[in-house]
Design a protein around this nucleic acid. Structure first.
Lengths: 217, 217
DNA sequence: TAGATTGTTAATCGATTAACAATC
DNA sequence: TAGATTGTTAATCGATTAACAATC
């Protein structure tokens, strides 16, 4: 009995982590956990755990706690992992290859149904159960089926034209690994960025900050 | 003349993005920008831009705006990109290889000085300017030099023991691609997570939410 | 019933936005 | 000087934490 509607992004971003912890508990045959115990393990507060879970309806039992399996299933439902969306990969360089091979798409709500590349020496090569296709065939490919998401593993300088083309083909949803800001150009697009370079820079900041602090004390 | 001290994580996470936009402006020989104009391009508010920049001292000029080059340099300094920290890569599978090849470490404040792997068929292979080393040689390697960061590109089941070993070798800073929560175990460690699976699940949520919304309207 | 733990409301804290005086 | 735009303070909004009555 989910409440849904207007669950904040802060909560959503915590859900996959809850999902991981609950899955692990269920695997270890722990079928019951209190908000306090879960909070301790995840470095959160019990209040926050209860607030989060109550965004989508009461799943605990007073005096008892939460059923790990039921809660895990509920989060699975909330995250939309039950239905598989179709995704295509654009760019099969180092990063694209790694993403395709490393991610278990089916466990995250997606099916990888195509991989496209511009450089001739990669076209035709196998990638998982797929063969890498010529980027020029993209339009024909998309006209024959519904594609929900494009995974962008292309260099920044290509990103503008490629995302424009994908958008014109009706793809409004991007898992974006390139350093290009799609949402600035297409405000109605659904964009999830994985900016590894940015992530590494914030790590640099924290190390730097930490060493400055140690110097001063 | 940075103020520093207690810049919030929300601000820090925006800095790399400012850095990117300012670098681009400087490259295009735009040497001046107002908070309003920058905000428009980045999809922020002018207030937020000014608040952010004022965390580390006034760099604008009233009636004029900000000097893009000076500001970019300032952010570079804040993020600690001027001094290079040494990093080692643990795990040279698909993901590890992609990270090593894809990231320009020197531009993000780091030097990649070693890559380690357990599986014999990968040891000895070239990776960028390095040769992949046997994981068993890690301790000897670390005893001869200071390593600031370990990049974890290993399967989740390895993560607990590997991070424990790294921690015992004095490495307290991790760029973590594995689905294992290092900070739960080592609260004093500096951990930056890149959880691609989690990222993909939040994308699933947003598509699901979007399709539900369309259904109801 | 007594003890435990939730669901939920209220209080606090932090981050974003608005407003405007300072000043280039 | 007049216009533009900052730096900064105050107001608002949202997210986290605390408190406690409800209830299993």
């Amino acid at each position: 009995m989910p409440k849904r509607e207007n669950i904040s992004m802060s909560v959503i971003r915590r859900l996959p982590r809850y999902y991981r912890f609950l899955s692990e508990l269920a695997e270890q045959e722990t079928y019951r956990i209190s908000s306090g115990e879960l909070a301790k393990r995840m470095n959160l507060t019990a209040s926050q755990v209860r607030q989060d879970f109550n965004c989508f309806g009461g799943f605990g039992q007073q005096g008892f706690g939460y059923n790990t399996v039921a809660l895990k299933n509920e989060i699975e439902q909330i995250l939309g992992l039950r239905s598989l969306r179709s995704a295509i990969l654009i760019g099969v360089g180092n990063l694209g290859k790694a993403v395709a091979n490393h991610i278990v798409f089916e466990a995250r709500g997606f099916n990888l149904v195509g991989a496209f590349e511009k450089s001739q020496n990669l076209i035709g090569k196998p990638l998982k159960s797929l063969l890498v296709k010529d980027y020029n065939g993209l339009e024909a490919f998309c006209s024959e089926r519904v594609i929900d998401v494009a995974i962008l593993c292309i260099p920044e300088k290509e990103a503008e034209t490629v995302s424009a083309q994908l958008y014109s083909l009706g793809i409004k949803c991007f898992w974006n690994f390139s350093h290009y800001d799609i949402s600035c150009k297409y405000p109605d697009a659904i964009v999830e960025n994985v900016h590894m370079g940015d992530s590494l820079m914030t790590l640099s900041y924290r190390i730097f900050e930490n060493s400055e602090k140690n110097k001063n004390s």
